[in-house]
Design a protein around this nucleic acid. Structure first.
Lengths: 396, 396
DNA sequence: ACGTTTAGTTCGGACATCGACGAAAAGAGG
DNA sequence: CCTCTTTTCGTCGATGTCCGAACTAAACGT
């Protein structure tokens, strides 16, 4: 007999306690949101449920105004279906992708339409109070511009360039954000907004955004961002973000690469991001030439750095065996050099088995990956069974 | 609007198509198997279901003989419960943990009792036909010894020291197993046994075994095996094995560590397993001294190698942020040196955030981890909804 | 005008789950 | 020894979920 056995049972909730009705409603809502079905009979075909059952579970979604029906213009043979869409009036999601220096804010509805999108300056070194106050002000302004009541905000999603404990929404020992350690980001929004607040690492959101804009067969997926720092977002085989035990997963910027001894802002020496990040490259050309890089020199440096990043990625390919690696961050403005540098090393270093079907690509979403990922996380949360329950009328 | 959106929907099966009754039966069976509940009313308490519902879903399990009832000796106040256990007569699982040179075979019942266990020599270089024939012969002999009919074999689980495509059960480009590439391992058992055959990487099974013998809070878990080669098994936050896109995940033996140029059996130079594996150490002492290592020299070499493995593990900690790292393989016969060598490097290299709650431990299961993991995988498969369906009488 | 096709609704039956009740099996206490 | 309490387990009707068949609705084609 084995010492103690835990047969892969669910971690917290008992499957017996799940609310099947809510699960079905959530499933239908997500099918509508993703555009995979636009009418009742299409839902029935996709899910395999009876049409009557679909209608039944659609009722609460229509009642709370999450899903709206429209007349379809005819054109086909039979009775035209009533087209189902997520109701743009059902509420909005506020999404913030806060980078070290620049940020991006957006208001989106549950149909993933971006209503407003805006860039802001966010110098995170000025501390959480200042930065988050500016974010809140900008959000209120954007809402006012479009005449959206703050009470229509259903969810706020914030991406930060720091490890984040997702459950509590607090940054954990961020290396570049003085004053943010354990700062209660969700609470800072409670004055102006009553909606729940999700906080996550910015690279995680980018990875999620890229993963959701591709077919599910491209998971497991790694998103590697090379900008001021170097980070990595991990999406597992089943499409879930892997955040690790402390929310610190993907923090590959401080992997040490022998042969290098550059001092890193983290205090150690030889971290990959101390010599192969875009920030390191800019420091290099700034110091060497004195302000005027020159396109050719810059692209050569990028290619070298890409090779060094490729060494690390080759290791990750061995370990994680992803289906796709997506390269993002500011360094991808030299897309071809970046791609060539990474690919050459990865395909040379890694075993053929792990690279046989591997695809190394540039981000298709560019600098919008983070904000798109934030909206995706928000929509998935609102349309999840738990999210739907909070919208249902006074059952409890 | 986003280009194409796939809102984290399930990959293949529609939640609407799941058989709720089978799911519940499977859940109850796994609760009984793991010893978390031993009577109907206990099941009701744990699951939150009504006692009548528990009884109802227990019926098919009792009917197919998977679960047996025993009289309980009294002792408490009221009517003694009828104790539920997995029926030892319900059938057996054949488990094989095939290493490069040595292997381990076991017969276990669904209650995770090992009925017979045996070591065999398995020189995988002799090719799959020979090795698997010996495994089959040994299995038949073990069954005969205990007078178990071959028809009582419900499942066969095989662990191989190679990347394995789990769905098809075929090794994929194994570096050390000539002739095994794409060999249909399951088919080779079909002559003697009619049971389904699961094939997986041996390190994956060890990781699963270690993970299941610990509380679920110790996931995500990494199992690092250092023997002839170096490999790694990955268990994610929700207790699932991460096998990667090609079944090659965890193959960290061929991570290249700069500063080393030893030739590796894979054809490249500087792979970690070419100089830091137990095999490499043995070659070293064999070459240096000429056959008589000396305990002190060996343990010093182990400590050095452990530090080099620790460099790789530090990187994995950055990337994956596991809760626990379990060290296994033959090198752990120098447990203290191994542990100290790995720990010193990991805690020095990795960021404090990722190591704050990290625990680095020696395998608690030792060289039985693989065979235990194989039985666990088998039990979980048999008690899964899909596994139960195949045991149910003639519904389809 | 009438059939054809597709969409959506209504309704009764099959089945699942629950809670209440009662029976069974033990110990406690007189 | 008999009765009460306690705990377990089975049975049964009430309620709710899901399905499929039948029906209505709305378009097109001839």
């Amino acid at each position: 007999m084995l010492p103690w056995l835990n047969l892969g049972l669910p971690r917290t909730t008992s499957p017996a306690q799940t609310n099947h009705a809510l699960n079905l409603s959530s499933y239908l809502a997500r099918l509508v949101a993703s555009g995979q079905a636009t009418s009742r009979s299409e839902l029935a075909r996709v899910t395999g449920l009876a049409r009557s059952t679909v209608s039944e579970h659609l009722l609460p979604l229509l009642r709370i105004g999450l899903i709206a029906e429209h007349e379809a213009e005819a054109g086909a043979r039979g009775r035209p279906p009533s087209v189902l869409t997520l109701n743009p009036q059902a509420g909005v999601i506020l999404a913030a992708d806060i980078g070290a220096a620049k940020g991006r804010l957006a208001i989106a509805d549950f149909g993933q339409h971006f209503i407003v999108e805006r860039s802001i300056q966010t110098d995170v070194a000025r501390g959480p109070d200042t930065v988050l106050a500016e974010v809140r002000t900008a959000f209120l302004q954007m809402l006012a511009e479009r005449q959206i009541d703050a009470r229509n905000v259903r969810l706020i999603v914030v991406g930060l360039p720091a490890p984040v404990d997702f459950a509590s929404g607090m940054p954990v020992r961020p290396p570049i954000m003085p004053g943010w350690d354990n700062y209660p980001v969700p609470a800072s929004f409670q004055q102006e907004f009553s909606a729940p607040v999700l906080v996550d690492n910015d690279v995680n959101l980018m990875a999620l955004g890229e993963a959701r804009c591709r077919p599910a067969t491209q998971c497991p997926l790694l998103y590697v961002k090379a900008s001021t720092g170097i980070g990595c977002g991990i999406v597992t085989h089943d499409g879930q973000l892997h955040r690790g035990a402390d929310g610190a997963a993907g923090d590959i910027g401080h992997v040490r690469v022998p042969g290098h001894e550059e001092p890193c802002r983290c205090g150690a020496y030889g971290c990959i991001e101390a010599f192969a990040s875009y920030g390191a490259i800019l420091r290099k050309v700034g110091g060497d030439v004195g302000g005027d890089p020159g396109e050719a020199q810059l692209s050569a440096l990028v290619r070298t750095a890409a090779g060094e990043i490729g060494e690390v990625i080759a290791m990750l390919v061995h370990f994680f065996n992803p289906a796709v690696i997506v390269l993002g961050g500011r360094m991808t403005q030299f897309g071809d050099e970046m791609l060539a540098g990474v690919r050459s090393v990865v395909y040379r270093r890694a075993l053929p088995l792990a690279t046989r079907k591997l695809s190394v690509e540039l981000s298709t979403l560019g600098n919008r990956a983070g904000i798109i990922g934030a909206v995706v996380l928000g929509v998935e949360h609102v349309l999840s069974p738990q999210g739907l329950r909070s919208m249902m009328p006074t059952t409890e």
